[in-house]
C-alpha cells in the first residue's frame, strides 16, 4: 500500500485541534515521523469489517444512579491546584465575550 503523505498544512490543522504549537522546524521533522505512524495505522484498511457491527456495552435505565444530591467538595479544595484564582473562582486573563 502506498504510504499516506502528510502536508505541513495537515500537521498545522492537527496542531490547532490539539492546542499545541510547534516551530516550523519541529513541524518539518514531525512530518516523516507522522507518516511512519500513519503507515502503521493504515494497516487497518486492509481488513474487511463490512459485516461487523460494533456492540456497545450497556446497562438498563433502572440501573442508573438515583438522583440524590450529595455534598460537594469545599471550594478551597476545588481550587487547590489552580494556577490562578480570584473571588473563589478559577481565573484567566480577561476574555472578550
Amino acid at each position: 500500500m502506498e504510504k499516506t503523505k502528510v502536508t505541513i498544512e495537515e500537521v498545522k490543522r492537527l496542531a490547532g485541534l490539539s492546542s499545541l504549537e510547534f516551530s516550523e522546524e519541529e513541524l518539518k521533522s514531525f512530518i516523516p515521523e507522522f507518516e511512519n505512524m500513519l503507515e502503521l495505522v493504515d494497516q487497518v484498511k486492509n481488513c474487511d469489517v463490512s459485516d461487523v457491527e460494533v456492540k456497545y456495552t450497556s446497562h438498563k435505565l433502572a440501573q442508573l444512579r438515583e438522583d440524590c444530591a450529595k455534598d460537594s467538595l469545599p471550594q478551597e479544595e476545588i481550587l487547590l491546584n489552580s494556577p490562578k484564582t480570584k473571588k473563589g473562582s478559577f481565573c484567566v486573563p480577561k476574555m472578550l465575550d
Partner: peptide, 18 residues
C-alpha cells in the same frame, strides 16, 4: 477528525469487535 473518522476510528472499533 472530520474526513478520517470512519476510515480510522470506526474501522478500528469494528476491527476490535472482529
Amino acid at each position: 477528525s472530520s474526513g478520517y473518522f470512519d476510515a480510522y476510528y470506526n474501522k478500528a472499533k469494528k476491527l476490535q469487535q472482529k
